[in-house]
Structure formats: structure tokens, C-alpha cells
């Protein structure tokens, strides 16, 4: 098992490098001028001279040849430095990291809601004997995936804050202000979990071992929770990396709907101001999330499923 670790770490580094390169190509090589955006040259501000623009460009290192720019930025990024925010002059990495805790609190709670509700829908939908209930539960995830999250957030504010007065509508203070944003984030994520887990459960229920266990006299509940669920939950684990990325991305919309501080707000205003260093820092952070979680899942897999431990070693030995 230990054989696989260095190789996986190397893969993770490659993904991070690739995400950096992709964001460099998009942000620094595509046409569009952040300097003009900063100096306000576009709208009405006719006081910007060519000399101002040139000075600003030189200060940001945008004058160097592309290869030199790329090299310099890659070396800096490897040390966690993405440059200064064009809009505020703050260090982009600090700006993003300071916003992280607030976002983690809603994404964490959102993930919890998503796992609980998505899981409940999948388990109940496959356990029940009522065809109607099972069909109804199976139709919920596609519905959750079809509703625009920004609109769902606003509807929740409408109902729970203004009509019922249960929770504060906006802002970042207190646990009660976390609930609605977390529900909004959980909706699409929970839908994915519900769909994947239900499918996985159905596959497992068709396996021959289910009949064997039933024949030995185990009850349906015991088969469902003791055997089938344990086997079905494992494949769903591979989703974690993707889901975390989705939650982080979803925070852009959720935080702007609920006027909360966090990575999403930082991203949205950075995009508005065409603040390239900040946007790049966010993208690399998202890739880092994805990579680290996948790494953890990969390493946990053999621990949770002893059958895989054998397979991984076999793979490593044969050099695949």
C-alpha cells in the first residue's frame, strides 16, 4: 500500500501544476485588459493616458515575454504567492485564505445536510415496498438539480426570514445565519448523492449475496443496513472530491445571495473587477481542495475496504 503513495503525490502535484497553467493561459494570455479595468479607462474616465497604462503594466510585470511571465509566476505560485490584488493591492493569497473559514462553515454544514438528506432519500427509496413512495423519492434528485440555486436561496429568504421570521435574512453572524445558505448549497449536492447512492444500492440489491443472507434468515432491515448499505456507500466515497469542488463553486452564488463574506464573495467581486491574481488564487485553491480530498479518499479506500488493499498492492507490484 505504501508503494502507491509517492506516485499519487506526484499525480496530485501534476494536477495542481496543470490547474495553474490552465488559469495562466486563460487569465494572462486571452485578450482583455485588467489594467484598463483598474484605471477605469473604459467608462468616462478619460484622464487615463497611455503612459499611466504603460507604468501600471510594467509594475505588474505584464510587459515581460510570455515565457518569462509564466516562469516567474509559476515559481512564485509554488511558494504560495499569486501576486497582489489589482483592485485593492492586498496579497491575493492572504485575501483568499482570510475568506476561507467563513466559507468552510457553510460548505461543511451544507455537505452534512447533503449527505443526510441525499442519503435518506436513497435509502428510503430503495427500502420501501411502496412503488409510489419509491417513485416519488426517485424523482426528487432530478428536481433538485433543475432548480436554479440563486433562486432557491432567495425563495428560502422570502419564506423563512420575511414570512415566518425564523432566521436572519442576510449577514454572517451566528449559527442561525448559516442554516439557509447551507440548505441552498446542499440542494444540488444532495441531489447528486441521492442519485449515485440509490443507483449503487439498487446494483447491490441484485447481487447474489443478498439472497444468501435472506435465505439464512436475516430480516430486510438487517440486509439493507448491515450488508447492502455498507457495500453501496463505498463507491459513493469517490464523489467526495467532486462534491467539495461543487460546494466551493456553489459558494460564489450562495454567498452573494445571502450577502455573506467568504471565498465566493471574494471571487465574485474579483471577477467584476477583472482582478486576475485573486481569480487565479481561487482556481488553484479549488484544484488543491480537489486533489487533497481525492488523495485522502484514495488512501482511505483500502482501510475501509480490505479487498482493495490486496488489489492496490497487486497493481503496484505489477507496475501498472
Amino acid at each position: 500500500m505504501t508503494n502507491g503513495v509517492p506516485r499519487r503525490l506526484a499525480q496530485a502535484v501534476v494536477v495542481l501544476w496543470a490547474a495553474f497553467t490552465l488559469s495562466f493561459v486563460i487569465l494572462y494570455l486571452l485578450p482583455g485588459d485588467a489594467v484598463l479595468a483598474k484605471l477605469g479607462g473604459g467608462e468616462g474616465g478619460s484622464t487615463v493616458t497611455a503612459a499611466d497604462v504603460a507604468r501600471e503594466r510594467a509594475a505588474l510585470g505584464l510587459d515581460d515575454p510570455v515565457v518569462v511571465q509564466y516562469g516567474k509566476r509559476l515559481v512564485a505560485a509554488a511558494q504560495g504567492d499569486f501576486g497582489r490584488s489589482i483592485a485593492t493591492g492586498e496579497d491575493a493569497t492572504t485575501l483568499v485564505l482570510n475568506a476561507l473559514p467563513s466559507t468552510l462553515s457553510i460548505t461543511g454544514l451544507g455537505l452534512l445536510f447533503a449527505v443526510v438528506f441525499g442519503g435518506a432519500i436513497a435509502i428510503l427509496g430503495t427500502y420501501t415496498r411502496s412503488r409510489l413512495l419509491s417513485q416519488f423519492l426517485a424523482s426528487l434528485p432530478p428536481l433538485g438539480n433543475s432548480l436554479p440555486p440563486f433562486w432557491v436561496g432567495l425563495m428560502l429568504i422570502q419564506v423563512f426570514s420575511f414570512d415566518l421570521g425564523l432566521v436572519p435574512a442576510l449577514g454572517s453572524d451566528g449559527f442561525s445565519s448559516l442554516v439557509l445558505p447551507a440548505v441552498t448549497l446542499a440542494l444540488p449536492t444532495g441531489a447528486i448523492i441521492g442519485q449515485v447512492l440509490a443507483k449503487s444500492l439498487r446494483t447491490q440489491l441484485d447481487e447474489p449475496y443478498v439472497e444468501v443472507v435472506l435465505a439464512k434468515g436475516a430480516g430486510r432491515a438487517r440486509v439493507h443496513f448491515g450488508h447492502v448499505l455498507r457495500n453501496a456507500a463505498l463507491p459513493a466515497l469517490t464523489l467526495v472530491g467532486v462534491l467539495a469542488g461543487n460546494l466551493l463553486a456553489g459558494s460564489v452564488i450562495t454567498e452573494s445571495v445571502f450577502s455573506r463574506d467568504g471565498i465566493g464573495r471574494v471571487t465574485a467581486s474579483a471577477v467584476s473587477a477583472q482582478d486576475i491574481p485573486v481569480v487565479q488564487a481561487v482556481i488553484v485553491l479549488a484544484a488543491l481542495f480537489f486533489v487533497v480530498l481525492n488523495l485522502v479518499v484514495d488512501l482511505l479506500y483500502p482501510v475501509l475496504d480490505p479487498r482493495l488493499a490486496g488489489r492496490v498492492t497487486a497493481k503496484a507490484v505489477s507496475g501498472v
Binding site: V15, A18, A19, L22, S23, I26, L27, L30, G245, N246, L248, A249, G250, V252, I253, T267, A268, V271, V279, Q280, V282, I283, A286, A287, F290, V291
Partner: peptide, 11 residues
């Protein structure tokens, strides 16, 4: 490897 909404925001 990058969530699609972040990718489109970068674009």
C-alpha cells in the same frame, strides 16, 4: 479538475 462555474468565471 476545476469546477465548471469557476472555470467559466475565469473565462
Amino acid at each position: 479538475s476545476v469546477p465548471s462555474i469557476l472555470l467559466s468565471l475565469a473565462l
